[in-house]
């Protein structure tokens, strides 16, 4: 495995707040890694350190083998960055935005112009290319921002919450763009607070909370890590309590009850379960089951399982 990005024990404090508190992560070359975490978990700080914009207090990080502090200039030659805000010039056209960045990347005037046209065509922004960016929609601007970070096709791309605040269609378009970039061999490290985004795009997910990684793995590994769940639908609300008690005994987990939906969902803890087993158990408890199923947890459930308890601890 060739490694593109490595972080070891990164620490960065702002006054009393430790935005990063010993973050470790490894991104293999050519893969997509999603850093997933709640607001304030340290996602943006992590990106800023890796993109040489912030110096860590402790720990070290490398991008393609270059140290982000000592060899910052070499790191900058290998990365593209799209931040949380669309860092494009509203007062310029889309084409001019890309051309100027191309010239700053020393492409030369003519090559910068050619590249800008090529990118606008390829990412379906050619029609709007000669309009001022301030007349563009939010989704188009973010796409331009994303494209602006690949004017020179950097081998490593950092995306800080690329779709936060976008409507579902624009989000899908950004995802398509990211997938195209990965198809071309680019390593992508993106942060997100959307589990679906991580699930759809990432080969590996690093869940961070309180400035450090609390879980790492592929979406499948993470889902399997907290086991399967049993979901049942009962007929009347009067049966909920009995059903929950029976399920708790059967699965060994603590069931969540959705009283309005007449649904109960219980994690399976250290035991084997089957659909007939669920039905028999509830039948024995005198509960009429309308629907029963065994499924893997969603990434949301994994996330809440890993992240929420810590906050409850902190609050207690």
């Amino acid at each position: 495995m060739t490694v593109a990005v490595v972080a070891e024990g990164l620490v960065r404090a702002y006054g009393p707040v430790r935005a990063l508190d010993g973050l470790d992560l490894v991104v293999p070359r050519g893969s997509v890694c999603a850093v997933l975490g709640p607001n304030g978990a340290g996602k943006t700080t992590a990106i800023r350190v890796l993109a040489t914009l912030t110096v860590p207090d402790a720990g070290r990080a490398t991008v393609l083998g270059h140290d982000v502090v000592r060899d910052a200039a070499l790191v900058r030659g290998s990365i593209g960055l799209a931040g949380q805000h669309a860092a494009v010039d509203d007062d310029l056209t889309g084409r001019e935005n890309l051309e100027i960045l191309g010239r700053m990347h020393h492409l030369g005037r003519r090559e910068a112009r050619r590249r800008a046209g090529e990118l606008l065509d390829r990412f379906d922004l050619a029609d709007a290319g000669d309009r001022l960016v301030k007349t563009w929609s939010g989704g188009m601007r973010r796409r331009l921002d994303l494209i602006a970070s690949v004017v020179v096709a950097p081998p490593v791309l950092f995306l800080d919450e690329p779709t936060t605040g976008l409507d579902p269609r624009s989000r899908t378009e950004i995802w398509t763009t990211v997938r195209e970039l990965v198809g071309a061999g680019t390593t992508v490290l993106l942060t997100t607070q959307y589990l679906e985004e991580a699930d759809r795009l990432a080969d590996d997910i690093v869940i961070i909370d309180g400035g450090k990684a609390v879980a790492t793995g592929s979406p499948d590994v993470l889902k399997n890590s907290i086991g399967v769940r049993v979901d049942v639908l009962v007929e009347t609300s009067g049966e909920l309590a009995a059903a929950a008690a029976a399920l708790a005994a059967y699965t060994g987990g603590d069931p969540e009850v959705d009283a309005a939906g007449l649904r109960i969902s219980a994690p399976v803890v250290g035991t084997a379960v089957s659909v007939p087993g669920v039905v028999r158990t509830l039948d024995a408890a005198g509960v009429a089951v309308l629907d029963a199923g065994i499924r893997r947890p969603t990434l949301d459930e994994v996330f809440l399982h890993l992240v929420r308890p810590r906050h409850e601890e902190a609050a207690a």
């Binding site: 993109a51 040489t52 900058r76 960055l81 949380q84 860092a87 700053m104 602006a148």
Partner: peptide, 13 residues
């Protein structure tokens, strides 16, 4: 404020 400076600063210029 909008991150343009950050983008320039992350570039090898």
């Amino acid at each position: 404020g909008r991150g343009v400076v950050d983008r320039f600063r992350s570039m090898p210029i």
